[in-house]
Computed example of a mutant assay.
Amino acid sequence: MKRIVIALLAPLLLGGCLFSPGKFTSELQLFANDQFAFTYDGEIQMLALGKLAEMANNSDENFVAECYDADFDMAECSEAEIAEQRAEWDAGAGDRRAEQAREAEKMRAVLGGIDPANPEAAQEVAARLERQRGWQRVTYKGDGVFDVAFAVSGTLTHDFTFPTIEGMLGANAFVSVNLRDGAQVRVDAPGFSRQQDSNPMFGGGSLAAFAAMAEADDGGDMPQIVMPEGTFTIVTDGRVLANNTDEGPAPHAAGQSLSWKIGATTRQAPTALIAFD
């Protein structure tokens, strides 16, 4: 089961799916004259950190013989079967180590040179965040989970994406804000949904579900994997042209608001189109 989880994790990380929300609250304010503010307070899990990376590095050592009967049910292996499987395992050791080294190098490149198996990796990630503008609190909780407070405000003269980490290119966005012609703003929050199963933390067939199974099977060695739980709110004095909230715009002291409750079963990414005219 651990090998299955590791096999699922690698392509997600190398494909840019590095981060997932835990418990959080997030708000985006969009006002006339391009004024904006964005906050995110809560947990972010960096999937490459914690015991999963450690298990990936040590997976070559975990030989277990597996045998099945005529009905394809698990059966006890004979000494001859164990010896045969062990010989095949040993013969493939060189190829496995070479592949492991290639994957580790790819992962370091994705992480901007940070080695996820390094015990100091989490502190290095926290240091990178703390020196970037907007990150007001970055506390490492273990198993790749950071407790953070992020806040920025100003004039929105260009597109905005959260989160970004210096040196880590192509990381998945929780929230993106895109400016359109005609004084329109498009907001998408792909990190707050399981749309097209792009976020491995969402859904019954997720990495989190596999991890829970592995933890039960292997005595609790799997890391904690946080589940998304929170709210995302847009506050604006603009005109809401489109949105996919359940309730639609609600009155707000600053104009109107849109709000989404996010959970492990959230399928649609929050989205809105707002005009300022």
Rank of each mutant, 00 (worst) to 15 (best):
F146H: 02
L49G: 10
S59K: 04
D143C: 11
G191H: 05
A242S: 15
A212I: 08
F202M: 08
M222P: 01
E27Q: 08
A75M: 13
R131V: 13
L12W: 09
N172C: 08
G263K: 07
T265V: 01
G219E: 00
P119D: 05
L258P: 05
D217V: 10
L258Q: 08
D143K: 02
L111F: 09
E54I: 08
G50I: 05
E81W: 01
E81K: 03
D188M: 05
R86P: 07
E120N: 03
D95V: 12
R128K: 11
F276Y: 14
S176L: 07
F146Q: 02
G182Y: 02
Y140S: 14
G94Q: 04
P249L: 09
T157Q: 08
L18H: 07
A212V: 13
R186G: 02
D115N: 14
G191E: 00
A214T: 02
E81T: 05
F174Q: 00
G92M: 06
I165N: 00
F160N: 04
Q136N: 14
A212T: 12
R133T: 12
A254K: 12
A121H: 08
E103A: 15
I114M: 10
Q85E: 15
E103W: 12
L13A: 11
A253C: 09
F232E: 10
D218E: 11
R267V: 15
T25V: 11
A91M: 09
E66G: 03
E166A: 14
D246L: 15
A80P: 00
R97D: 11
N178I: 01
D181W: 06
I4H: 06
R86N: 11
K51M: 07
R102P: 06
F162L: 07
F174K: 00
V235F: 05
T25H: 08
T266P: 03
E103H: 13
A70T: 04
E81P: 08
D34Q: 12
G142Y: 10
E66N: 10
Q268H: 15
F160R: 02
P249T: 13
G94F: 00
T265Q: 06
A242V: 09
G22M: 08
P228N: 11
S206I: 04
K51Q: 09
L207Y: 03
E103K: 12
E166M: 09
M201F: 05
T236P: 04
Q224G: 14
G112N: 10
M74C: 01
D159A: 08
H158M: 07
A87V: 05
I262M: 07
R194M: 09
W260R: 12
P163V: 10
A173S: 10
N243I: 09
P11Y: 03
A122C: 03
K141G: 13
A7S: 13
T164Q: 04
Q195V: 11
K141L: 15
E81I: 06
G144H: 07
N118H: 15
A126H: 11
F162M: 07
T139S: 14
Y140I: 13
T236D: 04
D159V: 01
D147E: 02
A101K: 15
A254I: 03
L241F: 01
N57D: 00
A151T: 11
L30R: 02
A183F: 03
G15Q: 00
Q268L: 15
M74Q: 01
E247T: 09
A212C: 05
A87Y: 03
